[in-house]
Design a protein around this nucleic acid. Structure first.
Lengths: 195, 195
DNA sequence: ACCTGAACACCGTTCAAGT
DNA sequence: ACCTGAACACCGTTCAAGT
């Protein structure tokens, strides 16, 4: 729950007040984003954190950087869940169950899922590395057991789940339905190739 | 191509300058959104249309209203395409082909797909009515032929396709891959029920 | 090194005045 | 009826001064 264990926690050589400012900014951002969505006023975040707006920009040059600091915590929990589920005797079911947790975990506030899609697909994408590595184990087991169609890429599965999360962020029941639909297939027998 | 045949075209009793202003605003919005995305400056749209900003707000009280005027044109073309494809002897393939056209048609600029998801799911959703009615015929034929799993709702199919469009708006090849994946099923044999 | 917050730029939205 | 655009409010971002 605290952000000190997250992958982008400060290294130990930094000044105490710097580390404290960073933690306060993250806590304030979580509160503001949960209330107003990912577009919440950054000035408001700085005010709530009790620091100047310049300090916010020093720590997080872009809004996406701030969002990724929050995502990193969610990713940590989801990576842990993936490791647990990788032991399941039914890898296909386990993958689907994890995808439900993934969608749920990246929809804590409006706009979070869109930021997740950026962080998962981006070139830098440092924040999502642990998530992708843990998910890969689960995904590979599902593939070996034949639960996933040959040639399917994990990146596409995550992006598809991210898309579902993006359009259902206010409606968890719809998220479940769309995920079931995409898992089972909307048109299972159709010719896959376009044109 | 012109917007005079769109479902929200002005009725014939309005003053000529009002109709002209409306058409100019839509043309200007199309140009600005294509260049800068759905978040383009509304002041810039009004300037390009050669009208005051107040006139823009009188015609389109919200940004979503303006976006839906553009979507209405795309929906008209997609409805026509659905009517053609409803005659296909292979309704499942036809539905998938139409979904590709749908995703492509609502990604003319960044942010268009998100507006489409709102217009498809919203309570008012006037703009999307013709689209949904034409798609329903195609969808029902696919259902009758057994190409779509029993109990599947068209609204969920459209929302899922909208989600794919949202996360692939800059990458048409990814859109094709994700659509194929969701059509065939990510995990075809997994237990569908959560928990 | 880091923090502060004033200053600048820009945009959304309203509404009194005009036609 | 409709149009205009000044006026207001608000926010993002930078950077000179301070510690």
């Amino acid at each position: 729950m605290t952000s000190d264990d997250s992958p982008n926690a400060p290294v130990r050589t930094v000044r105490a007040d710097v580390r404290r400012n960073r933690a306060r900014l993250i806590a304030a951002a979580r509160e503001m984003f949960q209330r107003d969505g990912a577009g919440a006023s950054l000035e408001g975040v700085a005010r709530l954190a009790g620091v100047g707006i310049g300090t916010l920009y020093r720590h997080f040059p872009t809004r996406q950087d701030l969002l990724e600091a929050l995502l990193a915590d969610a990713y940590g929990e989801l990576a842990e869940r993936a490791r647990e589920l990788a032991e399941s005797p039914s890898p296909g079911d386990a993958l689907l169950e994890w995808l439900r947790a993934f969608v749920s975990g990246i929809t804590a506030f409006p706009g979070m899922a869109a930021a997740a899609v950026v962080s998962l697909g981006g070139e830098r994408g440092e924040a999502s590395r642990p998530l992708r590595e843990a998910a890969a184990v689960l995904f590979d087991r599902a593939g070996e057991s034949g639960a996933v169609p040959p040639g399917t890429a994990l990146g596409d599965v995550l992006r598809l789940a991210g898309g579902i999360a993006t359009v259902t962020e206010r409606d968890p029941e719809a998220a479940d339905r769309l995920l079931s639909l995409a898992a089972a297939g909307m048109i299972p027998g159709a010719a896959a190739a376009p044109r």
